[in-house]
């Protein structure tokens, strides 16, 4: 079967999104923590360590990268912080395609896509870095 339209072009590696401003919105932090049953959701000094996922790096982050999320499983995820996120602060984020690999799975061809987002504060200092490895199952679905 021709799945060419789903194939992810390895030449996208290194391509980066335009920078975006995001805010660690206190209300969004509370809602996120509540959905996790996090008992520190009302603690102004605590932002859940997985919160940057809210900044939406999988949703059309990069021109040319089209992900059909119904075919996507999450393989790995990593966060690294230079300091904790502060509720209410603004950051500039950029997302980059860090890798594209092909692999055979039990349900057919898999494409592993590594995306990396870096968040910087107003002084340009790096605050966090997060990496997602997404597993695109080319062979499943209609």
């Amino acid at each position: 079967m021709d799945r060419a339209c789903d194939a992810i072009d390895p030449s996208l590696v290194g391509r980066e999104s335009p920078p975006r401003r995001v805010r660690v919105e206190p209300e969004a932090v509370r809602r996120f923590a509540a959905a996790l049953g996090d008992p520190r959701g009302e603690d102004p000094g605590w932002v859940p360590p997985t919160f940057p996922i809210v900044f939406g790096m999988w949703e059309k982050p990069i021109p040319g990268l089209e992900l059909d999320l119904r075919r996507v499983l999450h393989g790995e995820q990593a966060f690294a912080y230079a300091r904790p996120l502060r509720s209410g602060e603004e950051l500039e984020v950029r997302t980059r395609v860090a890798g594209v690999r092909q692999r055979k799975g039990s349900q057919g061809e898999l494409t592993l896509v590594d995306l990396e987002m870096v968040g910087r504060d107003e002084g340009g200092r790096e605050v966090f870095r997060m990496c997602s490895t997404l597993v695109v199952r080319q062979g499943v679905g209609a």
């Binding site: 923590a33 996790l36 049953g37 996090d38 008992p39 520190r40 603690d43 000094g45 605590w46 859940p48 360590p49 997985t50 790995e76 995820q77 990593a78 966060f79 690294a80 912080y81 300091r83 904790p84």
Partner: peptide
């Protein structure tokens, strides 16, 4: 991550998590 927050208490923070 929520469990990390409970174990840490108010004094600490998460440097890396994967």
């Amino acid at each position: 991550g929520a469990a990390l927050g409970r174990w840490l208490g108010p004094a600490g923070w998460v440097r890396s998590f994967e």
